[in-house]
């Protein structure tokens, strides 16, 4: 199945959790935060939140700025 992450199409296995997906991307979960279909997902839910087919995921982080 397929999701959209930061405007990129990504193939994932059914049942993939958010935590599992982030691990595959190589993203440090401590420094990112996530909107799934416009809803902010709490960090303690990453390992139980199963990504639905067609989900629109935004991975956001703090970056340098003034």
């Amino acid at each position: 199945m397929r999701i959209i992450c930061n405007d990129e199409k990504k193939e994932i296995r059914p049942g993939t959790t958010l935590g599992g997906f982030l691990g595959e991307l190589g993203v440090n979960v401590d420094t990112v935060f996530i909107e799934c279909d416009g809803v902010i997902i709490k960090k303690n839910e990453y390992d139980t939140f199963v990504l639905p087919d067609g989900a629109k995921v935004e991975l956001i982080r703090f970056v340098g700025g003034g």
Partner: peptide, 9 residues
Amino acid sequence: TVALRRVDL
């Protein structure tokens, strides 16, 4: 200050 942006995949 810090800004918020998408992660560069």
